[in-house]
């Protein structure tokens, strides 16, 4: 099915729960977003907010049991991924949607040569023979900036540095020229200088190959120059959703404001301790009736503890899950003008 509106991925009211001894963990609880072709979406949130589970659900990679997608639609290029037989999902995975993971040290198989791990993807999906797959693997390694690819392709993962391994992961993910690339915290485990290089590489490859990208991170600083729009997740829910520029300029949610404050700012004094949102994320197995952020929020009122907040529309593409979204937004606009 061709699509008319240029949407590559639609996720609608996705709920993915885990059955644990501690009760039902509502890791993802009603997430919706859309990704246009060629667009980059940032998914931001503290650790445990459900970013990975959201995207593993899209790839149908949730371990079942204990996990289960209990509700929602996942429409990839017109295909209802949730309804697909697992064999059909496998034809899409690695070919049309690919994923790179947080820890490049553990995400590559330590027992197999890089060549073997790269070649199996194109042999499977593109029907390459050994020679074609090998040549393609070298080409991909060069594409991700490993210039001595011919010498290094038969190495094992442990012979590469962390940054190099992440390049290999990216080469592997992009082997079949996928339409969607999901990068789950691709730089979190890397040194700061390497982080910048990897982000630059993703940006560059995306521009060249026209891939749509979902970039997951817990660091708003990472997505600033990379994405067109951002969703902010907390406790399995979308707390704010906006075009990147607008989210940075005029956030309408106290949680987003907290995240923005905790971005390291190189312009600021060095020795100053980094801001941290007080408290800890809630236990998603036992959420209180009101706003899950209430206990940590500087704007908290009585209503926040008793009533679940509404998802308020601020502007055309800007929504915020907060009883006082408009007030917070107005404050942000004021601060903006004051600068």
């Amino acid at each position: 099915m061709t699509n008319h509106n240029g949407t590559i991925l639609t996720v609608n009211d996705l709920k993915t729960y885990f059955q644990t001894e501690d009760g039902i963990v509502k890791a993802v609880d009603g997430i919706s977003f859309q990704l246009q072709k060629g667009e980059t979406l940032g998914i931001v949130g503290e650790s445990g907010s459900g970013k990975s589970v959201t995207n593993l659900s899209v790839m149908r990679l949730i371990p079942e049991p204990p996990g289960k997608i209990v509700n929602g639609d996942i429409i990839f290029d017109g295909i209802d991924v949730r309804e697909l037989a697992i064999d059909e999902v496998r034809k899409i995975r690695g070919k049309r949607m690919a994923m790179i993971f947080q820890d490049p040290m553990t995400s590559l198989n330590p027992f197999l040569r890089i060549s073997s791990q790269l070649m199996e993807v194109t042999r499977l999906h593109l029907g390459h023979n050994k020679k074609q797959a090998y040549d393609h693997a070298i080409k991909m390694l060069k594409t991700v900036g490993i210039s001595d690819a011919e010498e290094r392709i038969d190495s094992y993962p442990h012979e590469f540095s962390g940054g190099m391994r992440q390049r290999v992961m990216i080469a592997m993910a992009l082997s079949c020229d996928p339409e969607l690339l999901i990068a789950d915290e691709p730089t979190t485990a890397l040194d700061v200088t390497i982080q910048a290089q990897i982000l630059e590489l993703i940006k560059d490859l995306k521009a060249r190959m026209g891939t749509s990208v979902i970039l997951i991170t817990h660091d708003l600083g990472v997505v600033a120059g990379m994405t067109e729009k951002i969703i902010v997740m907390y406790a399995g829910k979308v707390f704010e959703q906006a075009p990147t520029r607008e989210l940075f300029a005029t956030p309408a949610n106290p949680y987003t404001k907290g995240l923005l404050k905790s971005v390291p700012d190189p312009a600021h004094e060095q020795g100053k301790e980094l801001y941290q949102i007080p408290g800890l994320p809630p236990d998603v197995a036992h959420l209180p009736p009101g706003c899950p952020f209430a206990e940590r929020c500087g704007y908290v009122q009585e209503i926040c503890r008793t009533e679940y907040p509404p998802f308020i529309q601020i502007n055309e593409d800007h929504h915020s899950l907060c009883h006082f979204a408009r007030e917070v937004y107005a404050e942000s606009v004021q601060e903006r003008q004051a600068k």
Partner: peptide
């Protein structure tokens, strides 16, 4: 349960 098995699955291998 390890990460590289998840990677292998994400590649579409059976």
């Amino acid at each position: 349960r390890s990460d590289y098995i998840r990677t292998a699955r994400a590649k579409g291998l059976n």
